[in-house]
Amino acid sequence: MDIQESIVDIILAIVLIISTLVLIMRVWQDLILAVAATLMMASLGGLFLSLGAKIRNLDQNVIARERTMRMNLDELNVMVSNKCDTMISEVHQIVGELSRRVYR
């Protein structure tokens, strides 16, 4: 994963964590609540980053499969075209032979 591609996601995760810290400043007396809320928001930010990375990975896989399928279809098109050309030339030869026999 490129860091430059996910810089926006990382910034948003940091903003999420900082906003959580600001929101729990009032209840800072309860340390367990503050730590739990901070960990919850940090894990939520990490989850968003992980999902973004997985979506990018899936997108790259789809692009690679599409490219492979396109190449395979092109090869198949060339093969079918060659076979059709061969069959057409054989049919022309047979028709030519038959027409010569008919005129004899």
Rank of each mutant, 00 (worst) to 15 (best):
D2E: 10
I3R: 03
Q4D: 04
Q4R: 04
Q4E: 04
E5R: 04
S6D: 00
I10E: 00
I11P: 00
A13M: 05
I14K: 01
I14H: 01
I14L: 02
I14E: 01
L16D: 04
I17D: 01
S19C: 03
S19A: 03
T20S: 07
T20I: 07
L21R: 07
L21W: 03
V22H: 09
M25G: 10
M25R: 10
R26W: 14
W28Y: 13
L31P: 08
L33S: 14
A34R: 15
V35Y: 14
A36W: 15
A36T: 15
A36H: 14
A37V: 15
A37C: 15
A37S: 15
L39W: 13
L39Y: 12
M41T: 11
G45W: 01
G46H: 12
G46Q: 08
G46I: 08
G46D: 08
L47C: 14
L47R: 10
F48W: 06
L49I: 14
S50G: 10
G52W: 00
A53H: 07
A53W: 08
K54I: 09
K54E: 06
I55E: 15
R56D: 09
R56V: 05
R56F: 04
N57Y: 14
L58T: 05
L58Q: 06
Q60K: 13
N61P: 01
I63A: 15
I63P: 02
I63H: 11
E66S: 11
E66P: 01
R67P: 01
R67T: 10
T68N: 05
T68L: 08
M69G: 06
R70C: 07
R70K: 13
M71I: 09
L73I: 15
L73N: 14
L73C: 13
E75Y: 06
E75N: 07
L76M: 14
N77D: 09
N77T: 12
V78A: 15
V78W: 10
M79C: 03
M79I: 06
V80K: 07
V80H: 07
V80Q: 10
D85A: 11
D85Q: 09
T86Q: 04
M87R: 02
M87W: 02
I88D: 08
S89P: 00
V91Q: 07
V91Y: 10
H92G: 01
H92K: 11
Q93E: 07
Q93A: 06
I94Q: 09
V95L: 08
G96K: 02
G96R: 02
S99D: 11
R100H: 06
R101N: 03
V102Q: 11
V102W: 07
Y103I: 06
